[in-house]
Amino acid sequence: MLSKSNLQSLLFLAVAVGITLLFLTGQVGGVLSGAGLPAYKADLFAFLAIVSVAVVSLAFGGNKTMIMIGGTVTAFIVLTAFQDSMVRYMTLGAIFFAIGAYGMVASRNAVRMLMSIELMINAANINFVTFSRAVDPEHLGGQLFAIFVLTVAAAEAAVGLAIVLAIYRNMATVDMEKFNLLKW
């Protein structure tokens, strides 16, 4: 359990949590304003610090999954702790969107790509509902838009999966790297 890479990533998590705590207790902001930088940018600096620590510990061979998850969670807390609630929800939506985009580009399985698309659609839905709550609480335009998004996503999933099944039946694979029939 406690292999070298796991130790590395635990160390990273400790550093990240430390930076977060420093930031949350106002230490980072104080130091930065002492150095002449505007305090409202403190969260961006804390974010950059976490990212750089993550890159360093990845370079020294930490456990990738733990570092990515821990880094994202701490960065999310740092970026949103002193924002108003609307920005908070939408930042979470942006994180889902980025994760979905990553899965979309990186995955080889066609069904996993569809799953990533669903994740991105849901991220967009979070933003719609947040706008509906914050900007338009009387008419609920955002929620209605989200309902239509839900409908279209259902149709998309049905047709997409049917296409994947048809491809699987013809090619006996769902690996995106092997669908190269149209490659000159």
Partner: peptide, 26 residues
């Protein structure tokens, strides 16, 4: 089949770029 493909680097770049765009817009 490995879970993820050789496009990991571009994928991380795309994800970070999209996130930064949305966050800065916010």
């Amino acid at each position: 089949m490995p879970a993820l493909s050789i496009h990991k680097g571009p994928a991380i770049f795309v994800a970070c770029f999209l996130f930064m765009c949305v966050y800065l817009a916010l």
